[in-house]
């Protein structure tokens, strides 16, 4: 197996095994979404209107919550030094870890989203768009999040700082993602929003591995 594949496989396995946190992230997603009807009332008309926003904001929070384990555990047990010293360029290591993070958060969240859409009385006609938007948008969250995770890797209680750094950078993905689902709900074309979301993904994929790898090297000094 290539080193790139080995890192993905290892991180996915670690995420799924005991204490890995993948299931907790998904439970967080489900529980937090159910808080909204309790908070704003069971009015289905209101819920179906704000449903896309709720799903996206909570998906964003779930992704952010699990970011601190992207590099922090490897930093604390010395694995990060060995990853940095491996023949694979650190930029590709970062990309592999982003993929693994997405496979254990973004992808399951995407799969779960229609079930939660049901709870929020979201129009079933919008489900394909919802899933497609999450499929394009959640990798952006993992990629941009890797910068925050790498910058805060040596910081004690860096989780909150990480959220502070990453949240403003998440906003374009949030906006395009919600607008796409809103458009589908209103029977309009979601295409322009999805294309913009895809453009955001391309920019993130091209640039974040460099920034995150630079931040990791700095924190290994």
């Amino acid at each position: 197996m290539t080193a790139f594949g080995a890192i993905i496989l290892r991180d996915v396995k670690l995420g799924l095994r005991q204490g890995g946190g993948t299931y907790w992230t998904l439970l967080f997603f489900v529980l937090t979404v159910t808080l909204f009807p309790l908070g704003v009332g069971p009015d289905l008309a209101l819920l179906s209107r704000i449903g896309p926003g709720i799903l996206w904001v909570v998906a964003l929070l779930a992704s952010m919550l699990s970011l601190d384990r992207m590099f922090q555990a490897d930093y604390e047990d010395g694995s990060l030094e060995l990853l940095a010293l491996a023949p694979l360029p650190l930029e590709l290591t970062v990309l592999a870890k982003c993929l693994a993070h997405w496979l254990t958060t973004g992808l399951p969240v995407t799969v779960l989203a229609p079930a939660l859409g049901l709870l929020l009385a979201l129009d079933p006609a919008a489900y394909p768009t919802l899933m497609l938007a999450l499929l394009i948008g959640t990798p952006v969250l993992s990629l941009i999040g890797s910068i925050g995770a790498a910058l805060t890797v040596g910081v004690r209680r860096g989780g909150v700082l990480l959220s502070l750094l990453v949240m403003p950078l998440y906003i374009p993905a949030l906006i395009f993602g919600v607008l796409a689902v809103d458009a589908a709900v209103d029977g309009l074309s979601a295409r322009p929003h999805l294309l913009l979301l895809a453009a955001d993904l391309l920019v993130a994929a091209a640039l974040t591995p460099w920034a995150a790898a630079a931040a990791l090297r700095l924190n290994l000094e």
Binding site: A3, G20, G78, S79, E81, L85
Partner: peptide, 26 residues
């Protein structure tokens, strides 16, 4: 490089731990 920290993942078996580091070097 072998540093102070052992880079051992408790969730993996002994062989899995070693296997990962070997596969990283191809």
């Amino acid at each position: 490089y072998v540093g102070h920290l052992d880079a051992v993942k408790p969730a993996f078996t002994v062989a899995e731990n070693l296997g990962f580091w070997a596969s990283l070097g191809g």
